[in-house]
Simulated assay, not measured.
Amino acid sequence: MAHTSIINLPTAPAIVGNVALWKPSRTAVLSNYYYMKLLQWCGLPAGVINFVPCTGVDMSKYVVSHPKMAGFHFTGSTGVFQSVWKQVGENIASYANYPRLVGETGGKDFIFAHNTADIEPLVAAIVRGSFEYQGQKCSACSRAFVPASIWPVVEKRLKEQTATLKVGDVQEFDTFMAAVIDKASFETCKGYIDRAAASPECEFVAGGTYDDSKGWFVQPTIIRCKTPTYESMVKEIFGPIVSIYVYEDDKLDETLAICDSASPYALTGAIFAQDREVIVKMEKALRNASGNFYINDKCTGAVVGQQPFGGARASGTNDKAGTALNMIRWVSAHTVKESFCPSSAIAYPYMTEA
C-alpha cells in the first residue's frame, strides 16, 4: 500500500468491526511499522489489526484464497489488483461470503489548460504537482495539455521554476526533491528518459538526467511530446517526469477528447481557465476522466474529510477512501422487522367479493 493510504486501508474495516491483516509494501515497511506501533500505543487491542510483512505470493496463497476472507482493501498497481480480482473469481465458490474488493490503483493524472488560464498558477501547479514527493504519488501530475498561444511563456516559466528546485538530502529543509524510492523505480524513469532522448517525437524542456552513483536520483524532467499518445503521455511512470502536449487553440474539443480517451486511467485531473463558460465545457468533457477533479488548482493534495479520494476505469473501484462511502463497504447490513400487530389474515382484501 502507498504511504498516503496507510491510515485508511487497515483501519477502515477494523473500525466497523472486522479483523484486518495489514500487508505493507516492501518499500514502505518501516514507516508502516511505526504507524502500527502508534496504533498500539493509542490502545488498539491485540489481534484487531495484524501487521504482516510478507511477499505478495504468500499473501495470495494464504490470505486471498482463504474461505474466511471477507474483503480486500488495496492501494497499489493496476496489474496486482487485477491479478487479485482474477484469483478471487477463481476461488469464488469456496468463500463463506462474496469478498468485497476495493482498490485504488494507477493513474495518469493530467492538467489541461485553456488559453485564458492564469500563467503563474498554471506553472506552479505543473511543477509542484509533478515533482513533489519525486512524483511518487498516485495523484501526481504526469501529463499536461497547453494551448500553443500561451506555450512560449509557460515554457519559459517552467524552465525557470524547475531550475530552482533543489534535489538532494531530505534532511535539509530547502530540499524539494529526494531520490526515487528504489532501483526499480530509477530504472523505470531512466528507461523513459532514454527513450525520449532517442525519439524524434520528444524534446526536453527541463531535466532529462539521472545519477545512481549515490542513491537513485532523477532530476525533475519535463518532456514536450509532439503527439498526445507518445508512451510517456499515456503510461503511468510514478516518478519525477511530466509530459506536455502543446495543442492548437482551435483544437480544444479534439484535444479534450484525446485527454479523456488516450489513457485507461481516471484518477485525478485539473483544468485551468478563467472563462466560466469554458470551465463548464471542460468539466463536462472530462467528467469521466478522473474521480477527483480540480479547477484552477493542481491535481494532487486531496484532504481527507473534505475531498473523498478515488478514481474509476483502470484506476480502481472509486470507493472514496477516507469517507463514509468507503466505510459502508466493510459492513454487512442486517435488517430487522418486528410487528406489534401481527395479521392473522390469509386472504388479501381484493380476493373477497364486495
Score class of each variant (00 low, 15 high):
S5R: 03
P10Q: 10
P13E: 06
V16N: 07
A28E: 09
Y35V: 08
K37M: 09
V52N: 01
C54G: 12
M59P: 00
V63K: 10
G76K: 01
V80I: 15
Q82A: 15
E90Y: 04
I92F: 00
V102T: 09
G129D: 08
F131V: 06
S139M: 15
A140P: 05
F145G: 11
V146M: 03
R157Q: 11
K159D: 04
A163V: 09
A163Y: 06
D169W: 05
K190G: 02
Y192M: 12
A198R: 06
G208I: 03
S213T: 14
S213K: 15
F217M: 06
T221A: 08
K226I: 12
T227N: 11
V234Q: 09
P240R: 11
I244M: 02
Y245C: 09
D250Y: 00
K251P: 09
E254F: 00
A257T: 06
A257N: 13
C259L: 07
C259V: 12
D260T: 05
S263V: 10
F272Q: 05
F272Y: 02
R276N: 14
V278P: 01
V280S: 14
G310D: 14
G311E: 06
G311I: 06
G316Y: 01
T323D: 15
N326P: 10
W330P: 01
A333C: 04
H334Q: 11
T335E: 07
T335M: 08
